[in-house]
Structures are given as C-alpha cells and as structure tokens.
C-alpha cells in the first residue's frame, strides 16, 4: 500500500544547530504512529516540515505532495492540532465554524456541531474566553469534522487535565481513525498513548533512532525483573539498562532470547516509556 508519508534524507538546520539529520521514514495508511523524543529532539521541526511550515533538505512527500510548495494541497486532506492554542483568540466560536466551512471543502458542519453539543462550549463565546481544554476540544471538533486522511497532533494534551486527555484520544480513536487514515502523534506523555499506538518513532538529536511497529517492539524489547542473585547472569546477556526496584533488579533487554532469560527472572514486555529511557541513555 502506498505510503501516506515518505521522507528521504531529510535535514534541517537553524544556524549552526542541526535540528534534523538524515531522516528517512515511510508511514503507510491505517497506522497510529507515536513520535517520541526528548525536548530539542526535532519533533516539532519534523512536524513543521511535514505540514509545509519550513524549508528543509532532502525529499518529503505527504499524501503525494511536496509539503512546502504544495502545503495547501497537503492540508486539503490533513488535520493538524499544534501544541499551543492557535485558534484566533478574537473570533467567536460560531465564526470559527463559519470560517472553516468557507475555507475547508471537506468540513462537515453538522458533524462539528454534533461534537460540540457534547461539550460546554458556547458558540457565542470568543476563543480567548475558553479554557485551554475547551480550545483543544473546539480545535479537535473542527479537525474531526473535516474529511482528511492524515491527522497530525503535536503535543495535543499539553496543559490538559486527565479527563480532557482521555476524551481527546477516545475521540481520535472512535470518531476519526480507520484503516484508510493515519494519525501521527508527537508527545512527551508516552504512557498515555502507548495503548493506542500501532507504531512508534524515537527521535534523538534530530535522528530517528528507532521506528518499529508495536508488535515488533514487543518482540524486540523485554523487561526482566531478576533477584540480586540472578542479576549477574542477566548482565552477562548485555542488557540495555538496569535499575533497582523494591530490592530487585530491573533490566531492559534487546533482541534477547525469551527462552534463555525466562529462567533468570520475571519476563514481560517492556513499556514504550522504559524502552525510550533505555535508548536515550537515561537522559530523557
């Protein structure tokens, strides 16, 4: 199946700072991809390159278009929610909806109203009068009511409480996602999206250090909780990391033979957050 997003040797510099370095990716339709990295890893730069916001080196195709020169073509089938509240603060909610109807051919006003009906957002209110959570809900309503094939969420839950966060991801799953569509989520909160991801990308210092499906990730990385006595045996197998928890040693193993390590301790799938920390060398 043709990839929705293709990147080849993509780089970007801001002065002497290299924000992206030789990034190559192919993301097919029907995936929910988590883009994970520490601050300054290049996540926002990558998303801005994908949405046509910046120039870059290398080649990018999003939905078949080069995003910088064909930004408007990409945006005809892409919904984007940024990490900061970006809806015009002076606009009334009703005017934002009118505006979307005028500029976005794929916008379904009825669907948007339906979504907003389940919130406490008044249409007569100005955007600046809404709370951070309400602004995100409004933006989400606008995006979910638009027929798109790609949804890009850049730290969408930044500053939201747990109820809003849960609702946001539930909406993305229930109201948006299907096998024709792809969702790309950039987040620090790995643990809250881990259960919905199909793929994960780790970015560090502008480089992709890992891009796996969640199934492959579970195969590749295991967590072993071993007693102090067995710790040395596990160490001999070359774990990625090791730390102590409640008097036991916790190891993250990569490409380890499950049959070999099972006798050494309790073996389970490593969480994305643990793998992330392990691969980042503990500095994430």
């Amino acid at each position: 199946m043709e990839a929705l997003i293709e990147l080849e040797n993509v780089g970007k510099s801001y002065g002497s700072t290299r924000a992206l370095h030789d990034v190559g990716l192919e993301i097919p339709p029907g995936r929910i991809v988590g883009l994970v990295g520490p601050n300054g890893a290049g996540k926002s730069t990558l998303l801005r390159a994908l949405t046509g916001g910046i120039t870059y080196e290398g080649h990018i195709r999003v939905l078949g278009h080069e995003p910088h020169s064909g930004r408007h073509k990409v945006m005809a089938e892409t919904g984007v929610i940024h990490d900061v509240a970006v809806l015009p603060p002076w606009m009334k909610v009703a005017h934002v909806i009118d505006f979307m109807q005028g500029v976005q051919p794929g916008f379904d006003r009825g669907k948007c109203m339906e979504y907003l009906a389940s919130t406490s957002i008044g249409q007569g209110k100005k955007v600046k009068q809404l709370s951070k959570g309400m602004k995100t809900q409004l933006h989400l309503a606008l995006v979910l009511a638009t027929r798109t094939r790609l949804l890009i969420l850049d730290e969408p839950t930044h500053g939201l409480d747990i109820l809003f966060r849960k609702r946001l991801y539930t909406s993305v799953l229930d109201d948006y996602f299907d096998e024709e569509k792809t969702v790309l989520i950039s987040t620090h909160q790995v643990e809250e999206v881990e259960h919905i991801l199909s793929d994960v990308i780790f970015l560090r210092e502008g480089k992709v250090i890992l891009y796996r499906t969640m199934d492959d990730l579970r195969q590749e990385f295991l967590q072993v909780i071993a007693s102090r006595e067995q710790a040395e045996n596990v160490r001999a197998l070359g774990p990625l990391t090791e730390h102590e928890l409640f008097g036991k040693k916790v190891f993250i193993m990569r490409n380890a033979d499950r049959a070999v390590i099972e006798p050494l301790g309790e073996v389970m799938n490593a969480s994305v957050a643990d793998i992330f920390v392990a691969l980042m060398g503990g500095d994430a």
Binding site: T51, G52, G53, R71, H72, K73, M75, A76, T78, G79, V80, H82, V84, A85, V86, L87, P88, P89, M100, V103, Q104, P105
Partner: peptide, 18 residues
C-alpha cells in the same frame, strides 16, 4: 498579530495557498 498569537499556524493548516 497572527504570528505573535500563534494563529498563523491555524491559518496555515488550512488548504488555502499562501
């Protein structure tokens, strides 16, 4: 104004040429 309040990102996320 739209650069300083961030709404430029919203406008540029729409299918309207620059």
């Amino acid at each position: 104004k739209e650069r300083s309040d961030g709404s430029t990102y919203f406008y540029r996320s729409l299918p309207v040429p620059d």
